[in-house]
Design a protein around this nucleic acid. Structure first.
Lengths: 200, 200
DNA sequence: TCACAATAGTGCAGTCAGTGCAAAGTTGCA
DNA sequence: TGCAACTTTGCACTGACTGCACTATTGTGA
């Protein structure tokens, strides 16, 4: 995730600290359960003071689910970069498949552990949703731009929301079946593209 | 929990208390902002002790957004009651339209005020999502039963999630435009049914 | 190389959310 | 009327989260 070449020591350390806190949070929660882990525990595991924890994350839940501030802009760029002759759904589909592939390649284990943690603690679902919601905003903008509609029109709003739904369903199934996430996501988009017609 | 006709004084009082707390929460938060209202304030406005507040709601946010435990089962029943020759999407569509009409008729003002509060406090979006998520479970079950698929198949999961997406989009647009919620919801379902094809 | 500016980390004190427990008050019922 | 069931409440406690002032570390320009 190294954006530009020259990144000072300061920024590298910040990144490290954030990562350490996030990983510690996921590991400890997976191990002991959400409410048997305190912010103090997480901070200790990451070797920083509890006060510092809150300089990085607004809450314990945020540390576990690590809102990815780059995801929205990335998706936006991906959608706009898809060939112009693709339909909007197809563009979103391809963008999402590419994004997922990239993210998974990056840190597959962390993802899986997070999914398991969420399954064991449905309270965290709220964070998952609202995290996706942030990405959705950028997705709405990208779709609106592609199809030449205002960003408050039903079409872009709905396409973005439906894509989010497809994503969540695919990830949910992924964590309980052996199928590759790519296939599950593609299946979901096929159903959407077919107007959710009754299955045979 | 006497649901049948004769409802004792005890249950009536509980219902009243819950309602008083919920309404006080919405009113106070709309008036002073989410984090300038404490549980103590809400309890005082509803004339109960702060401790009692937590006998009814697990958190301040819950009091504002009032999770409706009956919504899931109601939707399930509605979906299964739709004519058998309707497609699954159509059945969900009709069920949702009917549910919304019934709920709006019941307490239109509270709904609108809640929407406004949510717009002013995006933190609450998380609760909206996870509230919808509870309903989604029942919806998944109903759809699975209708189409004769297991409840962990992609189709029912996705249809329920997409319906939730359509609902959220419709409500969001409703609170910013003058159009009736019914029409906005119908429009969203039309787009879903058309496979989210590019608009003209 | 050395000061000085920026910024990250920390300790402290305080507010408020949320929970378990046991006592007190209410309601249902025989 | 009296007992059982249930609701409300006060109390004490843990832990999340914040503002503030201070220290430590890193970046930078003379």
């Amino acid at each position: 995730m190294t954006t530009e070449g020259a990144e000072g020591l300061r920024d590298r350390k910040k990144r490290q600290t954030r990562k350490a806190l996030g990983h510690a949070a996921v590991r400890l929660v997976a191990e002991h359960g959400l409410d048997h882990v305190t912010v103090e525990d997480i901070s200790a595991a990451a070797d920083v003071s509890p006060r510092t924890f809150f300089n990085y994350f607004a809450s314990k839940e945020d540390a576990v689910l690590g809102p990815d501030p780059g995801a929205g802009p990335r998706m936006r760029a991906r959608v706009l970069a898809e060939p112009a002759d693709l339909s909007a759904v197809a563009a979103v589909r391809e963008a999402l498949l590419a994004e997922v592939a990239a993210e998974l390649a990056d840190d597959r284990d962390l993802w899986l552990r997070r999914m398991r943690v969420v399954q064991q603690h449905p309270v965290l679902l709220a964070k998952v949703f609202s995290g996706g919601e942030a990405v959705e905003r950028d997705l709405v903008a990208a779709v609106a731009e592609r199809v030449g509609l205002p960003a408050d029109d039903t079409y872009p709003l709905l396409l973005a929301a439906a894509a989010g739904a497809a994503f969540r369903v695919a990830v949910a199934r992924w964590s309980t079946t052996a199928a590759p996430l790519h296939d599950l996501l593609a299946e979901a988009f096929d159903l959407l593209g077919a107007g959710l017609a009754d299955p045979p």
